[in-house]
């Protein structure tokens, strides 16, 4: 899923400091699963923001709405009847949400309430870790099923570098050296020969480096049916 963190209250409050009536829009997709943009989090943010503004003697009206997803226009359209009741909108979604909102409601000020961090999963309750860099050409099968592009601090295709120690990356003690894991797994499986030789240069055109990307599934495009 796409993982995100909530922006600091200070930052969010500063965004809406001049607003008196706002809408907070959550998303039932990834950010609900990673407990940062679902109904619960939207309610909590609304409450704490009201507390903060009451304390300043500058009350704010906040309504909330949680959409099925903010990355599909049919759901984004669900707030078309109410959006003009608000001066601004805070989107609790990954970076896609506030942009779909901005694109549909061109006159409206849309603030991002979250910082989108990575594609990852929960390794334990309350802990999420990065697994994918969205490079557009998956090759994890060449690396014992693990991705050095997303998980090596230097994205080495031919690791591990000289900073690998006891299975831990040199950048900090909490970061696994994924190359250590890859090598250990290959040795255990008796497939060390897979790591002999040089892996060639990566083609980054399929990654963000090739410019903004687009996926088209012809059989689904309405005009084609």
């Amino acid at each position: 899923m796409i993982v995100a963190d909530q922006k600091s209250l200070k930052e969010i409050l500063a965004m809406v400091k001049d607003n008196k009536k706002i809408l907070i829009v959550g998303c039932k997709g990834c950010v609900t699963v990673c407990n940062v943009g679902g109904l619960k989090e939207v309610e909590i943010l609304a409450s704490i923001m009201k507390i903060a503004r009451k304390k300043q003697g500058n009350d704010i009206d906040i309504d909330i709405k949680v959409l099925e997803r903010q990355c599909d226009n049919e759901y984004v359209a669900e707030i078309s009847d109410i959006i003009n009741d608000y001066e601004a909108v805070i989107s609790l979604a990954c970076g896609v949400g506030p942009q779909f909102l901005s694109e549909m409601y061109k006159e409206k000020i849309i603030y991002p309430g979250l910082n989108t961090t990575f594609f990852g999963g929960a390794t334990e309750h309350g802990v999420w870790e990065e697994r994918c860099a969205g490079c557009g050409s998956c090759a994890i099968h060449d690396f014992a099923g693990l991705c050095p592009i997303a998980r090596c601090a230097k994205s080495l295709m031919n690791g591990p570098c000289g900073g690998s120690s006891d299975g831990v990356c040199e950048i900090n003690k909490d970061t696994v050296c994924i190359w250590d894991t890859i090598v250990q797994k290959k040795i255990k499986a008796g497939q060390l020969e897979d790591l002999i030789g040089v892996k060639g240069l990566k083609n980054w055109r399929t990654a963000r480096d090739g410019g903004p990307r687009r996926s088209i599934r012809e059989e689904l495009v309405q005009g084609n049916i």
């Binding site: 591990p160 690998s164 120690s165 299975g167 250990q184 040795i187 060390l192 040089v198």
Partner: peptide, 19 residues
């Protein structure tokens, strides 16, 4: 090129040098 025989995993380091 550089080589660090003291980094881990040790058993792989000589193969990385060969690479």
């Amino acid at each position: 090129a550089a080589c660090n025989p003291f980094a881990d995993p040790y058993e792989y380091r000589v193969y990385r040098l060969a690479n």
